[in-house]
């Protein structure tokens, strides 16, 4: 067959295949019923809406609108900071700079809730935020549920992806290929933070977050004549993704309770302008008071037997109870 004839035959074949392949109806197989959490356009819309609402709240010095874009500990911490700002009559700063979303991961889900993981760089503060936006139900909006911060230089482990390019979600109880499961790591952090001597048996690293919290507890415990107790509890872990080394990145929320029992002849006050001072304006004297904090950390569980460690954190006081 000559070259021209072969070319003509191939062209005709390609034409037939082209026509045949162009939107030829066919039946789907029995694959899983799943969906990608969000499209790129939806992620852009999520961030634009978030920033718009947050800036409006900052401008009004009113945390109320935040409930349409945030929930859980993030909303609690932000609301607390707004309350502090209101009491101190201090205005916040609007976020008008460009959104620098450096990474977006949209896993596949077979049921709600859906969530996405994104890394956002804050050039002004030279940090990066590891954020989770979640849609709890089909009728709900996308809400920010976690936003731990890491230094801009912190290396975020690369993630493993499926054939479709989506990040792979890990069950919080799954410990395959790691020294422990994400939920076990969260519980270990709560145990070690409550009792720093347990770090050897807990199987986690005494990282910067553990040391920082231990220092704060130690200082509070040194207040003369004041009985100080601190307890930590881990909430149920919900957002875990597989890293490329077979490990996982887990978003962990910890509740911290600082309880002060102060005799009548003693008084505890906090520096002016601090959230604690805003929540307990008169300080604590002759009574017991509790300050509740939320801390969110991103725990990296390396593949293999290495110990988990926190690579990002975020938190603040959310409630003060006197009496």
């Amino acid at each position: 067959m000559s070259r021209r004839r072969l070319t003509a035959a191939l062209t005709a074949g390609a034409l037939v295949l082209g026509l045949a392949g162009c939107a030829v109806p066919h039946r789907r197989g029995d694959g899983p019923i799943e969906k990608v959490a969000a499209t790129r356009e939806q992620v852009t819309a999520i961030y634009e809406r978030y920033r718009e609402v947050r800036n409006a709240a900052v401008e009004l010095l009113d945390p109320t609108p935040l409930s349409t874009v945030e929930t859980g500990p993030v909303l609690a911490v932000d609301t607390g900071s707004f309350v502090v700002s209101q009491k101190l009559k201090r205005s916040g700063e609007e976020d008008k700079g460009p959104i620098d979303v450096t990474r977006v991961e949209t896993p596949r889900f077979s049921a709600y809730p859906l969530w996405i993981f994104a890394v956002v760089r804050d050039s002004e503060r030279d940090i990066q935020r590891l954020q989770i936006f979640e849609r709890a139900r089909a009728v709900d909006p996308w809400l920010l549920v976690a936003t731990p911060e890491a230094l801009a230089t912190t290396k975020i482990p690369s993630l493993r992806h499926n054939g479709g390019g989506q990040a792979i979600v890990v069950k919080p109880s799954d410990e395959r290929g790691m020294s422990m499961s994400a939920q076990a790591a969260a519980d270990a952090y709560a145990r070690v933070l409550t009792d720093p001597t347990a770090v050897a048996d807990a199987g986690i690293t005494e990282d910067a977050f553990v040391r920082q919290m231990a220092d704060v507890a130690t200082k509070n415990g040194l207040l003369d004549g004041v009985q100080f107790e601190q307890s930590w509890a881990a909430e149920k872990v919900e957002h875990v993704v597989r890293t490329s080394d077979g490990g996982a990145l887990a978003f962990v929320t910890l509740l911290r309770r600082d309880r002060y029992t102060v005799p009548v002849d003693r008084k505890i006050t906090w520096p002016a302008g601090s959230p604690q001072q805003a929540l307990l304006e008169d300080g604590i004297q002759g009574t017991t008071a509790t300050l509740n904090y939320y801390h969110q950390i991103v725990v990296y569980l390396p593949g293999g037997t290495a110990k988990p460690r926190a690579i990002a954190q975020f938190g603040g006081v959310v409630q003060g109870e006197a009496g």
């Binding site: 019923i33 799943e34 969906k35 889900f109 077979s110 049921a111 709600y112 859906l114 139900r137 089909a138 009728v139």
Partner: peptide, 9 residues
């Protein structure tokens, strides 16, 4: 809509 969304709705 995607079945995941409709089923949840």
């Amino acid at each position: 809509g995607n079945t995941v969304d409709v089923e949840n709705l």
